[in-house]
Each structure stands twice: as C-alpha cells, then as structure tokens.
Nucleic acid binder design. Structure first.
Lengths: 195, 195
DNA sequence: GGTTAAGGCATACGCGCCGTATGTCAACTC
DNA sequence: GAGTTGACATACGGCGCGTATGCCTTAACC
C-alpha cells in the first residue's frame, strides 16, 4: 500500500524542492530566506532541516534536479542528430540555450559552483558533464575525434559552452549573440576533429 | 606634500584590501566576517563602509585588484612568445596556472561571478577578458585567425581556459591533469586558426 | 593663528537569518 | 491497543550585516 506516511513525506519533499528552486532562482542562494521558502511550501524550517540537513544540502538537491533535467534535454537533442559529431554540437547548443534560462544560470552556473565547489565534485555527479564525456569518448573511440584526453576535452567543451551561455545572457542583444557563440563553438570543436 | 590625511587614508585602504583578500580567500565571500576582517587590519567596520560602500563593494575592489595582476602576468607571458598565435596559447597557459592558486579560484572564479554577476559586467571591466579579446582581435586582423566574432571567440577561449583550471585544481593529480588540459586547449584553439 | 568646515573613522543599535535543541503528534509494529 | 519510531513544529541563542550617530583630527580660510 506504499504507506500513507512515506507518501505525504515524499509529497512534502517535492513541494520543498519546488519552493527552494523558485526562491533560489529569484533571490539567489544567499538572498533566499529559509523561513519564507518553507512557508511558501506550507511547512517550516523543521521539515527542511530534517530532509536536507542544511541550506547547502537543499541547494545540492535543487542543483541535482535541474542538472538531471538538463542532461535529459541534451540527450534528446543529441538523439535527433545526423551523426555523432553533430550530436556533440547539438548537445552544446542545447546547453547554451538552456543556460539562457535565468533559473539555470543563477542556480547551476553561478551559485552552484560557488557554494558546492567544482561541478565534477558535486554529490549529484553532474549528469551534464557525464553526458558530454560519454559523447567525447564515443567520438574518440570511433576515430572521429583526435586522441585527446577525454576528461580534459569534455571539461573544456562543456566549460566553453556554459561560459558562452553566460556571455550571451549578459550581452545586450542575446538573439544576435547566440548564433555567434554557436558558430565560434563549432569552429573551436573542429580543432578536435580527426584530420 | 601630498597631504598627511590622504596618505594614511590610502594606507588604511590598502590594509583593508589585503585583509579582505586574505579573508575571502580563506573563508569564501559568504563565510568571511567583516568584523574579523577589519579587526585584522586594525580598523573597524566603519572604515570599511566608508571606503567601499558595502560587502559587495569590497569584493569588487578585491576582484579588480587580482584581475589586474592576472592581466599583467598574462601580458608578460604573451610578450615572451614567438608569434601572435603562440601568444594566445601562452596567455591561456598563464591563466590556467594562475587559477591553480586557491585565492584566484575562490575569489575571482567562484565568488566573483556569483556575487557580482557576469565578468563582462564587472565594474573593473575584467582586464583578463580584455586582454584575450585584444589578442584575438590582433589575430583576426592579421588573418592568422579565421573571421570569427571577436567577442564570442574571446569569451569561449577564456571560458575554456578558466574552466580547465577549475578542473585541474579539482582533479586528484593536478600535475598530470595540467598538461592534458593545455594539450586539449591548444587543439581546440587550432580550430579557430585560418586554413 | 585661530576658527570653521569637512571628512575619515569609531560606536551603538536593530533586524534578519541560520543552526540546534527540544517538544509533539500521527503512523507503523507486534 | 500499547509502544516506538520518525516526520515535523516550536523555541532559543548567536552571529553578521547595514545604518544612524558621534567624535576627533586634518585641511581650508580669513
């Protein structure tokens, strides 16, 4: 019967996550009040500390959630690509476009690294990074990409993409900056392609 | 005689900056106490708020200082390069090595963007970014680099470099990760070189 | 050179927020 | 159906930031 207890517990956890996500997106991690946030979810800080440990734990959970969604969208973008190389570019384009969402920028790209440290050390293991690493590994194994260190290349590519997104978002005309960023990214990636 | 007044004021400002830099590096922006920080400089928060406005203003000043030092070192590295293309790689290598300094990572790469927003919008104008932009512009003008958007390329390259530094620093064996990051960076940049 | 204006810095206060310790009540166990 | 567990609420303490206010030294000016 799944237990009446575990059911409401899970529901509360979900509501807490949603409220935290909204609060972190709107006010940033430091500016978000846990009292307000929990009240918005119809609960108190007691529930929060019981389920997430502390404020950092809450952020980690929110980051993991968004990161998972991003990885899924990137996978979908890659799936509809012609070949594996095109999949790499499609993934990057997907990341950049997703990072234009203020919620993603604020939580995953800015507060995440500042509070939780380097993404490769996140408890959630950074699904996005794993995604590009897999793609790069496939390309190298197939001989499509030069024999570069997979970890390094994946990190550089994803770093370039996410930084490009920050630039596009901060620019005065994002709609004109976006294609330029994508062009430059495609060219840079070309340097890694086998000759 | 330069004024006895302005002299001590400037000295106090310098000591405050140094104390803030040390405190931000050790405890992070959020964890650094302004009371402790100012006491370490032999002053109180009054001096701080008078000279820097608020905690953010203090961070902005510290970031501007470190950023300036980084840009100077990058320029020096570029100056001793064979040609302009080599200068681009030398600059990147310099950035990556500088970012292995925990102080630089913590303050400029993590807390800086999270608290002050995108680097291109910093009050200090981000000397590092301007440096690579200039280098890229020279390369494009000379026909050494393909006719890519200068802003976009500079942002991608510097983003990749700084992200590579975060990866190297977080890796278990930074001394082996570093050359791999540099290799991958050189290859990626190669994609931008004119054919 | 004495008075006045100004500005750099210290002191005092209030408020919000986080983390923990403690309490309570409903749900599962036997 | 009594005991126990565990999810969540309540209460408390402390810290840290920002501002308002006051003092005291330096520079300006007649």
């Amino acid at each position: 019967m799944a237990g009446r207890r575990a059911e409401t517990t899970e529901a509360n956890r979900t509501r807490l996550l949603a409220a935290a996500r909204a609060a972190f997106a709107e006010h940033g991690y430091a500016g978000a009040s846990m009292d307000e946030l929990t009240a918005a979810a119809g609960l108190t800080r007691g529930a929060l500390y019981h389920g997430f440990g502390d404020k950092r734990g809450l952020l980690a959970a929110v980051v993991a959630q968004i990161d998972g969604e991003m990885a899924a969208r990137a996978r979908a973008a890659a799936a509809s690509a012609r070949d594996d190389w095109d999949a790499l570019l499609a993934e990057a384009a997907a990341y950049i476009e997703m990072a234009l969402d203020p919620e993603v920028r604020r939580i995953v790209l800015l507060d995440g690294p500042a509070v939780l440290g380097d993404p490769s050390r996140w408890p959630s293991q950074n699904a996005c990074l794993a995604e590009t690493r897999d793609t790069v590994a496939r390309l190298v194994a197939a001989g499509t990409m030069r024999a570069v260190d997979v970890e390094a290349a994946a990190r550089l590519l994803s770093g370039a993409a996410l930084n490009a997104a920050l630039w596009v978002a901060a620019s005065e005309a994002p709609d004109v900056a976006l294609p330029r960023a994508l062009d430059a990214y495609a060219l840079m990636a070309e340097g890694l392609r086998a000759r």
